[in-house]
Each structure stands twice: as structure tokens, then as C-alpha cells.
Simulated scan of single mutants.
Amino acid sequence: MTRLIHLSDLHFGRTDPALAGPLLRTISRQEPTLVVISGDFTQRARPGQFEKAKAFVEAIEAPVLSVPGNHDTPLYNLFMRWLMPYARYKRAISRDLEPTFETPDLRVVGINTVNPFAWQSGKLSARHITRAMEHFGEDDGRLRVAVLHHPLQQPPTLDKPKTRGAKAALTALSAAGADLVLSGHLHNAQAVPFTQVPGVLFVQAGTALSTRTRGTPNTFNQIDLKPDGALSVTVWSATEGDGFLPGPPLSYEKGGTGWVLKGQEFASAPLRARL
């Protein structure tokens, strides 16, 4: 079975130090095919914060695919942010800002949505989407996953800038056969079909380690691809004294109208859409 572990918004420089060890042990026990980290490794992109993030990533025993977040570019050092925004990220995490990963059941492509000139808001260009579409290629039955930091859908009441180019990107990703989009940035967990393109499942990760939890526990996602093509999404939450514990899995199957939640657990599930 193909299993993804989805982490986001680690924010080294503002983490709960008691969580890193339990998180690494929990990930190891799940034996994932791939660990995805959708940005914001650091709080202020400082060298010491990146060193801690690097040590954490190197302790993960599975393959890791990551993309940068807006916090991974310097905020106050304008010279670096405008001329070499990813220098520290490349040294500590990965020189590839838009990596790819493949197995016989899976195609994953990272998309860099960071806009160094507008620190909070993300953006997607035609180049980003064209590259993702090329990587997905022809439909060969594999699960197609796009990974990006900024979400392509968010609640209208949320006071955060929306991602520029999100609507066009969703249309293009859907046309390219994307099944799943993983993102972070908002520090909350969700799993719901996109309103615009219900054939693409929107999975949002909370913050795995940061103290900036915004009223929710520290969480990460486990995504399992079943042999029949169904997906299950399980949110693991940090608890007092017990490390991370799983919530009830939500199972999705893809039909003619898009992804459909199986069963009646949706009404009380912790991943209920906030859109």
C-alpha cells in the first residue's frame, strides 16, 4: 500500500521541543512511502533555524519531498529576500525547489508558490503549472499529487491574502489529471474536494511542531492509497503525554462527479470542511 505522511509549517525557531522526538518516532512506525513537507521549515529563515530543520529532516528514515514556504525566505534582510531568497533553504534542505517523486503507483510534483516580493501571499505562474502537467504526463493509473505551500482554496472569512493564480491553476491541474493537492500555510487540517474542481481532493496540513497552533492541536496527515483506488486521510494530533495519536480515518472514493466521502462520519469528523 502506498502511504504518504504530510507535514507542514514546522517553524523551527518557534517549536515545542517536546514534540520533535515523538513525531519522528510516529513517522518511522508508519513506514511511509514518502514524507511530504509543504513549506515553512523555519520561523525567520535564520541560519540556526535552518540547521535545526536540516537535522530534523535528516532524522526521517523515509524519502522526503519538500517545497519552501514564505517563512523560509528572509523577512527583514531585504537584500537576501530580493536577490537570493532561497540561498539558506537550498543549503540546508534541498537545492531543488520543485522536486518530483515517482513509484509504480504514484507521481508527485512540488510547486514553489512563494513570492519573495509579497511575503505573505503566494502565486502560481503558467510556467509552474505547465511543468506540473508535463510531469503528470499521460494517464497511466498512478495517483497524481501536487505539493505546494499556499492553499488554492480558503475560507472567505479568513484574513490572509489569497494565492494569486489559484483558479487558473486548479483548472489546469484538473485538466492534467491531478488527484490530490497537498498544502499548508493556514495551520489547520482539512480534507475536502475542491469546490471548483471536485475531481481534485484538497488536503491541508496543520502545523506539526510550531507553538503557533491558532487554537488547534499540532497535527500531521497520513494518506493511504488503497488497492481499489480509494484514499483514506487520517489526522494525527499531539496529546498531553502520549505523543501523537490518530483520529478516525476519512475514506474517499472517486466517482463520476469527483471525490466522495464514504459513510456518514463526515458530520462529526475533525476534518470537516471550513470552506
Rank of each mutant, 00 (worst) to 15 (best):
R131Q: 05
V192M: 02
A175S: 09
H128W: 14
K162T: 09
R164N: 03
P156I: 08
L201K: 02
G141S: 04
F202Q: 12
T113A: 05
K167H: 04
L173E: 07
V114L: 02
K160V: 15
D159C: 12
W119I: 15
V114R: 00
V203E: 05
T113L: 00
R142F: 13
S174H: 14
L201A: 08
P156T: 04
I111C: 01
T157P: 12
A176E: 02
G122Y: 09
H187K: 10
T157Y: 02
L124C: 04
R144K: 13
A146I: 14
L201Y: 00
H187R: 02
A178N: 10
D140S: 10
P193M: 00
D140I: 15
L170A: 10
A132M: 10
L148P: 13
V192K: 01
A169F: 10
A172Q: 05
P116I: 06
H149W: 04
D140N: 08
L182W: 05
T157I: 12
V197H: 03
L124Q: 05
A118I: 15
G110L: 05
L182N: 01
R131I: 13
L148N: 05
D139C: 07
D179S: 02
L148S: 01
H149L: 07
L201N: 00
K167G: 08
S174L: 14
Q120S: 04
S183V: 15
E138K: 13
G110K: 10
N115R: 06
L182Y: 03
A172T: 09
K162G: 06
S183Q: 09
L201C: 01
A175C: 09
H150M: 12
H150P: 09
L152Y: 05
N188P: 11
N112T: 15
Q190I: 15
H135S: 09
E134Y: 11
K123Y: 15
A126R: 13
A168Q: 13
G199V: 11
T163C: 03
L173G: 03
S183R: 01
R164F: 10
T130I: 14
V197Q: 09
V147P: 00
N188F: 13
G165H: 08
T163M: 04
H185M: 07
P116W: 01
M133L: 09
S174E: 14
L143C: 08
D139M: 05
N188D: 02
V145F: 01
S174W: 15
L143Y: 10
H150G: 06
H150C: 11
R164H: 01
A176L: 07
V197E: 07
G184K: 00
T130H: 13
T171Q: 12
A166P: 14
E134A: 12
A189E: 02
L186H: 02
T113W: 05
A189L: 12
A175I: 11
D179M: 03
Q153Y: 13
L158I: 14
V145G: 01
T113H: 03
L186K: 00
F136T: 11
W119Y: 04
F117D: 02
D159H: 12
G110W: 10
L152E: 02
F194W: 14
V147C: 04
H150S: 08
